[in-house]
Design a protein around this nucleic acid. Structure first.
Lengths: 347, 347
DNA sequence: CATACAAATGTTAGCGCTGTCATTTGTCAA
DNA sequence: TTGACAAATGACAGCGCTAACATTTGTATG
């Protein structure tokens, strides 16, 4: 039996036998070296190396009722915004014994609920979830989770536990104000995949144009489709087919903005003179496009890294002095909006 | 004791107690329903629902010596190419009880080795690794892995187990041939992050230009830096500072190509008339850029999905009729190379 | 040198589940 | 009805590890 299952698997007991100590001492030597005398510790380490012992995380999890896995729920794997957050999360766990398990909610609240249950059944060391629009059930699950929880991407009034994000609404408001300040009056909004964050950007846009008395429903172009560069081209075509009275476009994200830029180039619409263009997220390419495109820089990697740091601190028993962190954003004003200024808000 | 640890946790035994059967019967009702009488099965299912029982994957893993986790090793999380592969992998496991655990090797063979050991210690149901350039040690680990293994992204002569990919070398060869066929003679190669796949693309390029007697070392621009759009701009500037005798550029990937395109626009270099431009991967935006950019389409999502399918088939005990799959590629000839044709190779 | 106490190590009993084998129940032919 | 056999269910042990408690060893003190 044993011979078959554990084919060659070295256990704590094996190490103990060779080193002439009990299994638990080996366990301690590995996890809490200071509890074992230096002499023994060294002998054990030698045997571990010699035998090529690798701790079994599954057994450890069962015995100690905890894992070293941080569960992360994000709505999309492909969206480059989340890819950046992931990178941040990875850099955060790097060098620690923790690993990361992702769940893709695909922008579905129900899928989020389901994944949450799955994750929670695995005794995560911590949980990182996207946004603040969980279902009632999800919130309950998170509240009762016996591990630290971080909500990322947004700020909101009632954090489940900890939170790192920024205000999409304020960011969009500032971007729109920037367009207005630079002389644009007929400012369109392009929004794809109207998820909660996009909705809040729309809110910010609306607040700004309404305040300035520039609101026109005809300038609102939204679609449930996922945003792509091609969609940006299309939305511009759609808009222009409807009206020529547009002098700026605030895009819900940089993919759309890039599409708009290409389409403007094709149609020989001068950016920023005929049309001002502003994106969101400040993807790397925006700064080197032709012309460089104004965008709202968000700190996506930082968000991931901070979230992990908070989880790790809590797991280590430290308390987190600032459990709610507003990372802010930065308006990168560039040529596409006749931009010179550069302002910062939040955090 | 118990009360504290398992706070509210419902176990198989709990379900069994309420349903008046033994724990093992509940286990069977859940895993192999056909082994339990319909009547009992129904009663058990009711109790499971009533109590909100969720199986504990950790305990199951320890007892059965296997998990439902597929380990995936990729060299980068941010690179959009791998993001697409991930999406494919996700769509592959969707609806199955399997989940995915990623490891980021950051293009390091040693990190790959380390992660491999970690993953293997967790009894994965299967392993998906990127490329064919594992270290000797890694190959040994993979060979001895007691689970199916799929190498993705590339084709190679000696698969560890299964393989899904395409020939980067052939793809680059065809792309370069296309440039030559369309009248370009001074064809530069831009390569960033010279990982094995980039190296093979370079090989393909070299084969084509040498065959045509068009090789010039001065047209080879490579850098270990990660590729970005900005880097594309820079490499073009560098090249032009060195020589004006260039009439086409084959970029190692689409990020670089996009940078080159923007820089050409800025410098009023006409694409495709002054300079032909070809990318690699056919990111969505290439088709709608201005002008649309020729690129080599690769089937990244498909690669991920197929890899998962192969693992699942093997886990289910089926045998995989075609354990080595060449997915091929497709040259998307567009305006940036005066392209009309559209050819296919591989698979 | 006995005492007290801390440090170091060991013993025991599971964690929740599943593999294996044993037992019970049901079914059918003779 | 009985026996033979399959189907359904159960008992038991153990996966590899760690928490909690128990014991031993070392060390300082009077």
């Amino acid at each position: 039996m044993k011979s078959d299952r554990s084919a060659g698997k070295v256990t704590l007991a094996d190490v103990g036998r060779v080193a002439n100590v009990s299994a638990i001492t080996v366990s301690r030597a590995l996890r809490k070296p200071e509890m074992v005398s230096p002499k023994l510790r060294q002998r054990i380490e030698e045997v571990v190396a010699e035998l090529g012992y690798v701790p079994d995380p599954v057994a450890r999890a069962l015995a100690s009722d905890r894992t070293d896995v941080i569960g992360v729920l994000i709505p999309s794997v492909t969206n480059s915004v989340f890819a950046d957050v992931l990178r941040g999360i990875y850099s955060g766990v790097e060098g620690s014994p923790f690993s990361v398990q992702f769940g893709n909610t695909r922008y579905s609240v129900l899928e989020e609920e389901r994944l949450l249950r799955v994750f929670l059944s695995q005794r995560p060391a911590g949980l990182i979830v996207s946004g603040i629009d969980q279902s009632e059930t999800s919130r309950t699950l998170l509240t009762q989770a016996r591990c630290p929880v971080v909500q990322i991407m947004e700020m909101g009034p009632a954090p489940v536990d900890m939170m790192v994000g920024f205000s999409h609404c304020d960011a969009a408001y500032d971007a729109t104000r920037h367009l207005i300040a630079n002389g644009y009056r007929r400012i369109a909004f392009f929004g794809a995949r109207m998820d909660p964050r996009t909705q809040r950007r729309l809110e910010g846009y609306l607040r700004a144009v309404k305040e300035a008395g520039l609101f026109d429903e005809g300038l609102l172009i939204t679609t449930p489709r996922a945003s792509t560069v091609e969609l940006g081209c299309q939305l511009l075509s759609d808009l222009l087919a409807r009206t020529q009275a547009v002098d700026a476009i605030f895009c819900n994200n940089d993919d759309l903005a890039l599409g708009v830029l290409f389409e403007c180039q094709r149609r020989r619409i001068a950016v920023p003179d005929d049309i001002g263009l502003c994106g969101f997220n400040d993807l790397e390419m925006m700064a080197v496009a032709n012309p460089p495109v104004t965008s709202v820089r968000t700190f996506r990697q930082e968000m991931g890294r901070r979230a992990v740091e908070m989880v790790l601190a809590r797991v280590a028993g430290k308390d987190v002095p600032q459990p709610v962190v507003d990372l802010g954003y930065e308006l990168m004003a560039r040529q596409s909006t006749r931009g010179q200024e550069r302002m910062r808000r939040g955090a």
